[in-house]
Design a binder for these strands. Structure first.
Length: 347
RNA sequence: GGCGGCGUGACCGAGUGGCUUAGGUAGCGGCCUGCAAAGCCGCGUACACGGGUUCGAUUCCCGUCGCCGCCU
């Protein structure tokens, strides 16, 4: 296998320092791969195509909305046929009326990866939910919930004052957030007050990027192409019965949880079904918000220095050979060399 | 042809003789450890054009152009 060879012979020195000189060699563990990128770049199709060829791979969805049963069309879930062909994990693990959370995801994903390993296979994480991905690849220690503490905090409408309190209790955490970001401040206080441990003691924050046993690969397309794909995807989803799917979901007596109902597309179509907007307006809004979401994703993933980006001018499927290279290289324990430039350095 | 009104940054839309020049939407950039497809932060120097009045005009006056309405 030429690719693996190349990786072995050339790039050894490029290996990120997973271990410091003094520490003993860790036991050999498979190097899993995570495929990331903005919404609608074609990650799923690419991952599926790769899994068909590299037969030791199981896919783990890293997507905060594909976890919900019944939310199929709008979350662009892989089809039942595709899921029969290649094992997929972390899809359809919650009911739409449940509030799925980061901690739940982290736990379930670690289990899934461990199971895959136990089967002697490798995980290919695929998804665009940045925080969920970090929780898995960096093994985040996600603090628990403290409802009593939270309830008291919710009473105080003065966000800046709450931030002041956090400055006293956990200045490190306070410095990491803007005094106006109520959500983060309340959460940090909840944990600090509830657990008696500063929120910041649970981890260094997300701006630290430690070496990971996951090899990170990004799929990139020009922004205009992504925008066009977002629009095309909504059109296709509408043709596939997206609106009926939303109708079914809202018709269920248990309804949709706060988390599930904020999913892009669903949220806007629900508003339309409630008579708040026309269908055209709903779609227009959904597209606009999805576009912004893609921008946030770009910003999020763009700052992770560990990601190896594979860029295509328009068609993500052309990246399949490169992705297979990355998979093979990760399997050999090394990242693949740079697609072009890096190769010359190998001699 | 006459009379009246309007002309504000990508769009919508307030407003004022000078006090750094509303607000909203979109856009762009950024942030993030239990709602994350969410939440949060930052960025716009515009007043159709030409002249005049004034210490100073986007705001007042005159003209030009454009748009709208009404009239003959």
């Amino acid at each position: 296998m030429p690719t693996a060879e190349r990786a072995n012979t050339c790039v050894r020195g490029y290996r990120p320092s997973a271990m410091s000189p003094g520490t003993p060699e860790p036991p050999p563990r498979p190097r899993h791969v995570a495929l990331v990128g903005t919404t609608a770049v074609g990650k799923s199709a690419l991952a599926l195509a790769a899994a068909r060829q590299a037969r030791d791979i199981e896919i783990v969805s890293v997507d905060s909305m594909q976890v919900y049963r019944g939310m199929d069309i709008g979350t662009a879930k892989p089809t039942p046929g595709e899921r029969a062909e290649v094992p997929h994990h972390l899809i359809d693990v919650a009911d739409p009326w449940e509030d799925f959370t980061l901690a739940w995801f982290a736990r379930a994903a670690r289990e899934a990866v461990a199971d895959i390993e136990a089967r002697g296979r490798r995980a290919l994480l695929v998804g665009g939910t940045g925080l969920y991905l970090r929780a898995v690849i960096d093994d985040l220690d996600v603090p628990g919930r403290y409802p009593e503490a939270r309830e008291a905090l919710e009473q105080d409408p003065d966000t800046v004052a709450l931030h002041g309190r956090l400055v006293d209790l956990d200045p490190v955490a306070a410095a990491r957030m803007e005094p106006t970001n109520r959500r983060r401040i309340v959460r940090a206080l909840e944990v600090t007050v509830g657990s008696g441990r500063p929120f910041s003691s649970f981890g260094p924050g997300l701006d630290v990027y430690p070496a990971s046993r996951f090899h990170l690969v990004g799929v990139g397309l020009p922004h205009e192409v992504v925008i066009a794909r977002i629009e095309a995807r909504y059109r296709q989803q509408m043709a596939d019965g997206f609106l009926d799917e939303v109708r079914r979901l809202v018709a269920d007596p248990q309804g949709l949880s706060r988390t599930a109902r904020q999913a892009l597309g669903y949220r806007e179509l629900i508003a339309h079904l409630d008579g708040e907007t026309s269908l055209d307006e709903a779609l227009e809004l959904a597209i606009r918000r999805t576009r912004r979401f893609a921008r946030r994703q770009r910003s999020w993933f763009g700052r992770d220095p560990r990601i190896r980006w594979l860029e295509a001018p328009d068609d993500p499927r052309t990246l399949l050979p490169a992705l297979l290279d990355e998979l093979a290289a990760a399997d050999a324990g090394n990242p693949a060399p740079e697609p072009d430039g890096g190769r010359a350095d190998c001699r």
